[in-house]
Design a protein around this nucleic acid. Structure first.
Lengths: 261, 261
DNA sequence: TGGGAGGTTCAGTATTGCCGAACGGTGTTT
DNA sequence: AAACACCGTTCGGCAATACTGAACCTCCCA
């Protein structure tokens, strides 16, 4: 482990959460180093355009190179690249916005967002992060993780974002069991009031979950009795096709192939 | 300057250009360090999720945290935040896609993309980078940079992306003069054949250029004699309003206010 | 005009990161 | 089938390198 690099990464995290930027002194305090140390690290990051210094206030903020690197991450991301066509198709088929997400720590990271076909103004959510237990994507992924990983994630303290958020490990374990049985996960206002989601897991050629794909929208449209089932089927089918694209099929996931063909 | 951090940043750059990821040995060679050194740096970056290791091939690629940080950069970016509403308005007014960009080194970085209103499938270009001299956004920005910066950028070797790309410093200097005179810049198939752009500079409260906003689309629609002028006016007006939003007005940029009001 | 806060520079010290050599695994060649 | 070559990884010792305390400068505020 390289100490200075670890500290530099901490600095990026600090600047990412400090909306208006942060000064050398503040950064030094937050990461627990002397002021000149923080300064040297910041200058190095600045040279690489990972942070930028406000010419007036002297405060530091995140830099443009991060956006470039984030974009490069997306372009080299196997799941994301393959999912674009499938996500657009699904969005057109069900008439809702579609998200593709991966697990990053204990959060879900949205790596693709296909807009709702006849949508008005919609904001792009690529790059957004959501606690795994509050969204359908997260539950679909975690339900299919190896036992050990799943247990670790369920043990950690789970925040309640709305009154509907489930935080009890036992209730979640039960719900994940249901996800494995039906092949899809549902969220009903657990991350934001009124928003719902239906998502299914995506596997790669080793048979491990690599992410999930799902539809997002208002509770009224997504979870209405008459549409809900059809939507779940469409999402699940798309997830299977996408998994096949990624090479899933033979070893641990034969059942998917059998069901899809 | 912290050596190890600078090297870590180099590694990110290397991984960003290596489409299929890179191994320890390759990374070590590219940045000119011993194999164990590269390994230690990679492990540290991996702990911070800035890179991820492929569990099978052992190769390293960029990690999800970069997308999160890139997103955080966008959300704290003054110009980007303020431009969202103006860009959408402009896109609706002129019926074309609208980009907002900033200068990052000698490239333009797209920080916002408003889709064309009645557009079919459009891919999102946020995070994309384009050489400054091949796009309208870049020319609009560079034309209004301080003399010294402008000279430095024009001196550097300029790549030709299409047959229409202007690379001669003298021709560019003349064009930039024209940009300053008219208040907007034009691109005609200089980055990609058939694509055109019209952009105007955006200033902040200090009177310095911070970026540019412009319309993008096929040459036939954008540069047709009958629409071209109206489009230029709309773009320029939007840029002025956006500049005012950022506090531009009194000191060095009085002329903009006078013209706009 | 004085005080204080914040960003920046400097020089010394020992902590820390770097390298050479060696290990274990995998895929390829002979 | 055995030997080879390649790659990611680990270890230990040396010294280069990065961290710290103290001081400087500038700007802002009282």
């Amino acid at each position: 482990m390289v100490q200075s690099v670890a500290r530099a990464i901490e600095i990026l995290r600090v600047l990412g959460t400090a909306a208006r930027g942060a000064g050398v002194t503040e950064v030094a305090e937050r990461i627990g180093v002397a002021k000149p140390t923080a300064h040297a690290l910041l200058r190095t990051l600045e040279a690489g355009q990972l942070v930028a210094q406000d010419s007036e206030t002297g405060k530091y903020r995140l830099g443009p190179a991060l956006l470039e690197l984030g974009n490069a991450y997306l372009e080299t991301h196997e799941l994301r690249v393959r999912s674009v066509a499938w996500a657009d198709g699904l969005a057109n088929r069900v008439g809702e916005a579609v998200w593709v997400g991966v697990l990053s720590g204990d959060h879900v990271l949205v790596v693709h967002h296909a807009f709702r076909p006849e949508g008005a103004v919609q904001i792009l959510e690529v790059g957004a992060v959501i606690p795994w237990h509050t969204c359908a994507l997260g539950k679909a992924i975690v339900a299919h993780l190896p036992e050990a990983d799943r247990a670790a994630l369920s043990r950690a303290p789970l925040a309640a974002l709305t009154g509907a958020t489930r935080t009890a490990p036992s209730a979640l374990a039960e719900e994940l069991e249901g996800v494995r049985a039906t092949g899809y996960a549902v969220e009903d206002g657990e991350a934001a009031i009124g928003d719902a989601g239906i998502a299914a897991p995506v596997f790669d050629h080793t048979g491990e979950v690599v992410g999930a794909i799902g539809a997002i929208g208002p509770v009224e449209r997504l979870l209405a009795e008459e549409t809900r089932h059809g939507l779940a089927v469409a999402v699940r089918e798309t997830a299977r096709h996408l998994s096949r694209d990624l090479g899933a099929g033979r070893p641990a996931t034969r059942r998917w192939v059998a069901a899809a063909s």
